[in-house]
Design a protein around this nucleic acid. Sequence first.
DNA 1: GATGTAAGTTGCAGTTGACGCAAGTTGCAT
DNA 2: ATGCAACTTGCGTCAACTGCAACTTACATC
Lengths: 199, 199
Amino acid sequence: MTTSVPRLDGRERRKRVTRRALRAATLELGLERGLGDVRIEEIAARAGVSARTFFNYFDTKEDAALLDVFTVSDEELAALPGPADVLWGQLAALFGRDAERVGDDGADLPRLMELQRRHPVLASRQMGQFSRFEARLAAAIGARLPDDAAGVLRAEAMSGSCITAVRVGLQAWARAGWEGSACPHVETAFAVFDPAFTG
Amino acid sequence: MTTSVPRLDGRERRKRVTRRALRAATLELGLERGLGDVRIEEIAARAGVSARTFFNYFDTKEDAALLDVFTVSDEELAALPGPADVLWGQLAALFGRDAERVGDDGADLPRLMELQRRHPVLASRQMGQFSRFEARLAAAIGARLPDDAAGVLRAEAMSGSCITAVRVGLQAWARAGWEGSACPHVETAFAVFDPAFTG
DNA sequence: GATGTAAGTTGCAGTTGACGCAAGTTGCAT
DNA sequence: ATGCAACTTGCGTCAACTGCAACTTACATC
């Protein structure tokens, strides 16, 4: 019987371990002394690799302290079922599920959000990551709406609102002390937009 | 008779000129050869200052290629009139007016958005700037809503949606060939959210 | 109009980030 | 066992960025 998760050969597994170690080291050192006072050399040392290798994994120190919040693939987006008038509900369900995966990677969401709170530049980078996903999302949603000016505007508004809903949902989860799952908080946030995008 | 705009002494005026020159030089050179292949030294030279002076104005090359989209002050936000159920309309009007000021600074919005299209890192930085404004906005809106979990969530959703509305409004303006004013496009974008935030 | 003061500019030196390259090492497959 | 491809590493290089001290300019006061 084969595993349902994609099979990882030893090489791939090792890369993940290194990646996680670099992320963890960046997070720890960043919280200890402030990200600005941490040299890449130290991060690499704590992760057990050379400084040069750090740059094989991340372009910058900041990138190592980001979270992959949106893991939905283009295929999943294209496969969204149903007509346009229930699309928002589909998106809410999809991203509610996706939010539960946040942190599967071994990322420590509470500490990471704390680090982002202390270093606004990290929040900026995180937003940039969101922005890249938003472009893909807008394309997927746009394919289901009329191809006129109003449809394009609506698709962009919806994709932007998905990002917003996930963001504020996660923040609500944080305010709730990280109790339980992220999913209900994200779904509550999506519900705020229901009147605008349903029906 | 005094001018209605704040009086600028010679020093302040000169700073503005330099700032605009640096912005313009960054934009021109960035479009000519790609931002990555432009040295700060060249930007400074084209603006008629030293490289060291560039860093007295901007922290990074990228920052010089950003736009101050949101110029609304905390005072204006605090002075928003009316009860919560008409708040969204007030915000739409406020940011519609604000959008008309975009580019007053001499910024060339079309060319700047083109540069951002070519260099995703710029879009990231721009989003970071938005994110800082969003925090202030959420605080101002939150002061007008109930101080419970639902109110905070709603305030964050509204502030995030303001940013989204302005962004997609400006993009719609771009698609319309920059015809006329940005204001109606931004107001149309805000109207998409009316059902969620009005009444 | 001379002069003191504060603001702004500049060059310089030094640190760190970031990347290309080539050599070395490790794990996988045949 | 052996060949191959992936990954790591050290080295060299260049550009980004910062602190500092000297210099220049503009404003205010007399």
